[in-house]
Simulated assay, not measured.
Amino acid sequence: MNVRVIIFLCLFPFTLWAQGFSGLGADVNGFATPRPDPVFTFPEDHGAHPEYRIEWWYLTANLQGADGTPYGLQWTLFRTALAPGEDAGWRSPQVWFAHAAITTPDAHFATERFARGGIGQAGVRAAPFEAWIDEWALQGADFDAMTVTASGPDFAYDMALSAQGPLVFHGADGYSVKSQQGQASYYYSQPFFDISGILKLPEGDVAVTGSAWLDREWSSQPLGETQTGWDWFSLSFEDGAKLMGFQLRQSDGAGYSASTWIAPDGTTHSMPAGAFVAKPSQSHKVAGREVPVEWQVSLPERGVDVTVSALNRNAWMDLSIPYWEGPVTVQGSHNGTGYLEMTGYE
């Protein structure tokens, strides 16, 4: 076991899956829990919520170089709490970690950072907005115009973001149910970012432009005991409409799915549980496990019947918390691009 993993296990006494709540235990141990009919306050809610157990600022982007080559980018800052609330210095119960990645058609680069709260190494400020860990940062005068930077041993990026539409709230006005038992999170997104900047790759710098999607989510609740993993899709279609859909797999072969249809003007329609259907159609062996890399995705209420395919089948996040995440193409009733994240594949 290397030093990185030892430090990780000391900081995180439970297993955490990115973009999910599995492994968080059977109760919330004094943490606040999401309630229906939330009232969001901005810019304050762009900041941290230390009374909740887990939270993230999660950016993905579909990019294109001047020669038409497609790329993907990820930047994520996670906050997880050992106990509710905040304290000064090393007494802070807040722990931070971050992931950054670039995906090309032929390569996937990923790295991570860890920090303890209370000492200034990582954190989030609501206004002016700044989310940081070490020298990585997502920041701007407000949430509509920001820059994002990250670097790893063999890649880096420096990008500018500009929102072209409104925030989007998932579930019932931002109250997003995750299981038939009623576990839930607060969940909103900014899916309308234009993005441009420079990717630094081993073969040189690449100027890129594209679109980006930023997810904000926090909760304290675990998933159901039978839920084993998560498949999350953010799809952007050529006509300007967008679709967020996720499904939580269960050990008995059943599952729970939820989705949000987003019109080009930002008008949202929260779809009924189970309306979003994603079925794997091709798998690929990566990191010693079979992972779906092509899916048949449908949302009949909106006429969606598409094939979602990985740009790079080997987009495995080989980090302390391993999972698959990368850009995808969309073909069928709707054409476009998007991002796919999959956890819990052993």
Rank of each mutant, 00 (worst) to 15 (best):
F192Q: 03
G204D: 01
G197Q: 02
T147C: 10
Y186P: 00
T147A: 14
K200L: 15
A172G: 11
Y175R: 05
D205T: 12
D173K: 13
T149D: 11
F192L: 04
A172D: 15
A163G: 13
S185I: 02
S151D: 14
G165R: 00
S189W: 02
P153Y: 08
G204S: 02
A207Q: 15
K178D: 00
K200D: 15
F155G: 06
Y187M: 11
M159C: 06
D142P: 11
D154R: 08
L161W: 02
L201I: 00
Y175L: 05
G174H: 11
Y188W: 12
A163W: 10
V206H: 02
S179P: 03
F169H: 14
P202Y: 02
F169K: 09
Y187C: 12
S162P: 10
L167N: 13
E203T: 14
I198P: 01
G165C: 00
L167I: 12
A156S: 04
D173W: 09
L201Q: 01
L167H: 12
Q183R: 06
T209A: 06
D154M: 03
H170F: 11
Q180M: 14
D194P: 07
L199I: 07
Y175N: 04
S189F: 03
V148P: 00
T209M: 05
S189C: 01
Y188L: 10
S176Q: 15
S151E: 15
Y175P: 04
T147W: 09
S151V: 12
S176E: 14
A156Y: 00
A141C: 12
P202A: 05
D173L: 10
F143M: 15
F155M: 08
A145N: 10
V168I: 07
Q183H: 12
A163L: 11
V168Y: 06
M159F: 05
Y187N: 08
E203R: 13
P191E: 04
I198W: 08
S162A: 15
P202W: 04
A156T: 03
M146V: 09
Y157F: 15
V206I: 03
Y175V: 00
A141H: 14
F192C: 05
K178I: 02
Q164V: 08
A141T: 12
S151L: 10
K200Y: 13
Q181I: 06
Y157H: 07
H170M: 04
A150F: 10
S211P: 12
Q181Y: 09
Q181L: 13
A145I: 03
V208Q: 04
E203K: 13
A163E: 09
L161S: 04
H170N: 12
G182L: 07
G182E: 03
S196W: 08
P153G: 14
F155W: 05
A160K: 14
M159K: 06
G171N: 11
D205V: 12
D144E: 14
Y175G: 01
F193E: 07
